[in-house]
């Protein structure tokens, strides 16, 4: 039997004493794309942050296995090296740190961890050029400080570009579509689709089903009050669009939550 890429079991998590996740179960097999939808404040970003290893969140119960290893034992940077990537809902601006500088540090830290040779400046710049093209990212942006002076859309595109650079096994995209017009949305979706392989898995967190027209998910889950209340295939996203999240509540008792 194949080992799941990600296996979240009965995950409870809190921040500053406030309980946010109340028993999340989610299994992702290699190659699968799962979408998580849900109203504002339902805990989507919290789930993403807990997977990425944000230290402000406390896991109070449950487990996360990544490729069979205990993810909760690893620090944030070790998780990234092991192959977890989070495209942040709100990418952080870092004054004084040039994007290229930062990316070279990241790429080589990860390569080192994986026993690969570190890239020299030439190979690194070739890679930057190639990956930037894949998400139509203006390469001049990369001479700026990390996310500084980037428009909303540029920040999102830069996150997907970083994902392409870092070559993860699991990509978690937290509302990477919000604030994008339809053209930018297609570009971002296309960038993600290029990364879809039989080994790599994705968690696509979104509010809108329109992204899922372009990144077609294998499964759709609805997160509400920190638990997954409904799971289905991509048609669930359409149903949500039609009925809204309120419409989902009615079926809560009768659905089997993955």
């Amino acid at each position: 039997m194949t080992t799941p890429l990600l296996e979240i079991t009965n995950l409870h998590a809190s921040i500053e004493g406030k309980q946010i996740l109340n028993g999340v179960n989610l299994t992702i097999m290699p190659g699968e794309v799962h979408s998580i939808m849900g109203p504002n404040g339902s805990g989507k970003s919290t789930l993403a942050s807990v997977i990425a290893g944000h230290e402000a969140y406390e896991v109070t119960e449950g487990s996360i296995l990544f490729n069979g290893i205990d993810l909760l034992e690893l620090e944030a940077d070790q998780r990234a090296c092991a192959g977890v990537f989070l495209a942040f809902q709100y990418p952080v601006e870092i004054p004084g740190v040039s994007t290229k500088f930062f990316l070279k540090a990241a790429v080589n830290a990860i390569r080192k961890y994986r026993g690969q040779e570190e890239l020299d400046a030439m190979d690194f710049l070739d890679m930057v050029e190639e990956k930037a093209k894949s998400v139509s990212l203006n390469i001049d942006l990369l001479d700026r400080n990390v996310n500084e002076g980037f428009s909303g859309g540029e920040k999102k595109r830069a996150e997907v570009f970083q994902m392409a650079m870092l070559d993860p096994l699991l990509g978690v995209l937290d509302e990477t579509d919000s604030g994008l017009d339809i053209d930018a949305l297609k570009i971002v979706a296309d960038g993600v689709n290029q990364l879809r392989t039989q080994d790599r898995g994705f968690v696509i967190i979104t509010h809108y089903q329109r992204l899922l027209d372009f990144i077609v998910p294998d499964f759709v889950h609805v997160l509400k009050d920190g638990v997954i209340v409904k799971s289905g295939d991509k048609s669930l996203a359409l149903e949500l669009e039609e009925k809204g999240y309120a419409g989902i509540e009615a079926c809560k008792s009768e659905c089997s939550c993955a």
Binding site: G53, A76, A80, F85, F88, I94, G96, A105, I110, N145
Partner: peptide, 21 residues
């Protein structure tokens, strides 16, 4: 956290931020 979430170890990430500052 942002730097670390990209694989940069904690000490190196701190060094980078101090340097930048």
């Amino acid at each position: 956290l942002y730097l670390r979430s990209r694989g940069i170890p904690k000490d190196a990430a701190r060094t980078l931020l101090i340097y930048a500052f």
